[in-house]
Design a binder for these strands. Sequence first.
DNA 1: ATTAAACTTGCATAAACGTGCAGAACGTGC
DNA 2: GCACGTTCTGCACGTTTATGCAAGTTTAAT
Lengths: 248, 248
Amino acid sequence: MLTAQRQQLIKDELSSQGRVYARDLAQRFGLSEDTLRRDLRKLAAAGICQRVYGGAVAPDAGPLHQRHQHLSDEKQRLAAAAVQLITPGQTILIDAGSTNTAIARALPADMDLTLITNAPDIATIVAGRGDMRLIVLGGVFDPQTGACMGPTTRAEVASLRADLFFLGSCGVSAAQGVTAFDAETAALKQAMHAASDQVVIVATSDKLGTAAPFRVLPAADIATLVIGEDAPGAAALAALGVPCVTAL
Amino acid sequence: MLTAQRQQLIKDELSSQGRVYARDLAQRFGLSEDTLRRDLRKLAAAGICQRVYGGAVAPDAGPLHQRHQHLSDEKQRLAAAAVQLITPGQTILIDAGSTNTAIARALPADMDLTLITNAPDIATIVAGRGDMRLIVLGGVFDPQTGACMGPTTRAEVASLRADLFFLGSCGVSAAQGVTAFDAETAALKQAMHAASDQVVIVATSDKLGTAAPFRVLPAADIATLVIGEDAPGAAALAALGVPCVTAL
DNA sequence: ATTAAACTTGCATAAACGTGCAGAACGTGC
DNA sequence: GCACGTTCTGCACGTTTATGCAAGTTTAAT
């Protein structure tokens, strides 16, 4: 990846998030923190950001901006924790959903990854970077979930395989396991599960302890559950033997 | 390969990807890095790109979601003319390419359209609007063209049909017809042609009169050719009986 | 006050760079 | 055909840039 390109991505994140962490950037780009600190110093010298201990912030952080940042903050932290489960060379299957979009954005650079997704917006995010392969699952686009589904999609999934499957946008509870809002979604997620070695669920606290009508898979099939530190209902899941990773 | 042709390919990649690597280009073209660096310097001197350590980047690369919006006036005018060929209720197949992206943006609202595309960025554009159905063609994403291709994609196309096919990113000439830069691209476009009633080609003037190595279809198979008012080589195509629409 | 993390600075190395030069390919005029 | 100039290309040389590591300093939190 080009140095200029990397610095452009930092600029993008600064303008969209209002802040960046040197440590986080170094991990994502697969470079030393020294290099990223140099980048931040350079951007600060150009007036693009302001250097602070631990990273950098955008010069003009409006009040509304901070609010928006607060809302998405949980997902970003969860995503940062989730991508640490990935090892170089793996094939990653990513479902649709806003949490999974955050994961796609947080994917570390230059790890020779192959990404499979049925969400066009995730495909677009990853399409811009040349450091990973991308396989798109086709099908009928569902505006509700932002994903492609239907028989074509399920057939395509069945002909592929992945090391890690990031399953998203569902209810997760100890008693009911993972559940979905409609039959088609549930069937697709099951097909994705069948094509993957491990299922990872990154759940915001509003998903935990809730259940939808359609059963996807039992809690015991979850390889890793990534949750926030104060997540409700986590104890019940941990009691079932579901491996939990706590973000932050 | 002609020097001008090589530099045109670099331009294409710059506008589609926003960046090029000197080393990568040298390897792909089978030339020394010195030669490619010379090309990049020349393009930079012409203001087409900006030279950076390791390659070059497109001049004004804003935030990710704002990129690709700097479509030229020519493409927007062509797109506006092209979408007038669409009638309500039709199924539209749209290929990848910056001109076709402009067409996707220009699609009229509330016409009960069904859109089929193999370009994730076009899918993302249309995904946001609720007034049309969207079918995404999956496959292996090719960063070069920004499209999904491969056997899966061709098989999916074969199971669908469309009224109009907007074919993009090719050379168009009276003698050679429509041509593509590689075999896979040509094969996919042929499969798309076979699935469609009519082929529409929207060609910017730099594509007219040029030919690439791989033949896609003869000029006689073009249902409608949309071109600018001062397009060179248009007379030769019109002489062959290709119906032409002139934008503005 | 103590400690760990983040930081700056200097240095070493490898990659990318620009320049000058020479040979090859091509067109032009004699 | 032949001399000439132009353009494109690859190679050799010295220079610049990016990066990681080590050493010492500053910052923030306990």
